[in-house]
Simulated scan of single mutants.
Amino acid sequence: MFLEEPQPLRAQSTHVTEGVKRLVANNPSKMTYHGTNTYIVETSGKTFVVDPGPVEDSAHFEAIIAALQGKPAGILVTHHHSDHFGAAPALRQRTGMPVFVSRAFPDDAFEPDGYLVDGQKIAGLTVLHTPGHASDHLCFATEDGVLFSGDHVMSWNSTIVSPPDGNMQDYCAQLRRLIELDSRIYLPGHGPVLEDPRPYVERLLSNRMRREKEILDHLTCTPATVETIAKAVYRKTDPHIAMAAERNVAAHLEKLCSESRVVEKAGLWRLAGH
């Protein structure tokens, strides 16, 4: 179900949809695919940057500067993770563009120019607070059905939900919200453009529910640790992917615990009432 694309051009913008250009940072990894997507949004003669990317990629930074047209008006941050937010302070200093982040943004060391809340309008976009991957995660929706989906929905893979900042109950609830929104195209934080996204998001949610059932089925046999459950359910051998699987299992267990379906004692999880 996941999408692939060739190695993208670096330090160069490409047109992805009307009024939007994409640049891909040179920070590939097992968690970021080819790299972080930065979007340049032109609206009413003003230019906004969505997720300027990692601070380490100077060529990407200069390409953002070169791609700015009209009046540079602002920097929108989907969430505080450094591969998305890292270059924001430097871009503000270089261009004078204000930085807008979620009201839930956790970095006390950075003073943004404005906080965004669910339902707010900015740059012709509607702000959607979509916690799950991160507590401060935002998506941005245009009036004509384009959604900047950040890391909440990526086209190349499912996102990691890692407690304590990640929350599986919130993540699934916001997937349901995005399904109801029924946007026509997603521009994710990593990976290619996602067209006809509703069936894809429905499968993402279905897969999470399948994992949840597998965890519960495993616990019907015996109490288990997060690590044991992850090995049995995900069966990942790559250490980085196995670690991500453990974090997802921990998030599922927190969700199930909040629903009084499982309990934990001394590091062992078991079905409630067993």
Rank of each mutant, 00 (worst) to 15 (best):
P131T: 08
I185C: 07
W156A: 15
G114K: 11
D136F: 01
G114R: 09
T220D: 10
G45W: 01
A250Q: 14
V262Q: 06
P131S: 12
H133W: 02
H133K: 08
E56D: 10
P131M: 10
V263P: 00
E180N: 12
S158L: 14
V16W: 08
A66T: 07
Q69M: 06
G45C: 06
V24I: 13
F48E: 01
G150I: 04
P28F: 11
P106R: 07
L216C: 10
H137L: 00
E180R: 15
P106C: 06
M154C: 11
F61S: 02
L204Y: 07
L187Q: 00
L219H: 10
R235Y: 11
E62T: 00
V262F: 08
G150T: 00
H34D: 09
L3I: 11
E202Q: 15
A123W: 05
I241D: 14
V101R: 04
D108V: 10
L147K: 02
Q7K: 15
E5G: 04
E5R: 05
V117K: 12
H79G: 04
L91K: 02
A11H: 13
K121H: 09
H274P: 12
L216H: 09
V20C: 01
T32F: 01
G124M: 00
Q120P: 02
R103E: 09
P163K: 02
I122L: 03
T32G: 02
G191N: 03
G124E: 04
L128M: 06
L76W: 05
D170V: 01
C139T: 01
R177V: 07
D182Q: 14
R198E: 14
A73P: 05
V262C: 10
V41N: 04
A25R: 02
S162I: 06
K265D: 13
I229V: 15
T142I: 07
E56Q: 13
G35Y: 11
N207A: 11
S158I: 12
S258M: 09
H129V: 04
D165E: 14
Y115A: 04
T126L: 09
R177T: 07
M154L: 13
G166D: 03
H15K: 06
P8E: 10
R176A: 15
T14L: 12
E195H: 11
T38S: 09
V146Y: 00
V233H: 08
T17H: 12
H152I: 15
Q120E: 14
P223L: 09
F61W: 01
I122E: 00
G96C: 07
A242N: 10
W156G: 04
A173L: 14
D151L: 08
L138T: 00
P28C: 11
S183Y: 02
R184G: 06
K265S: 15
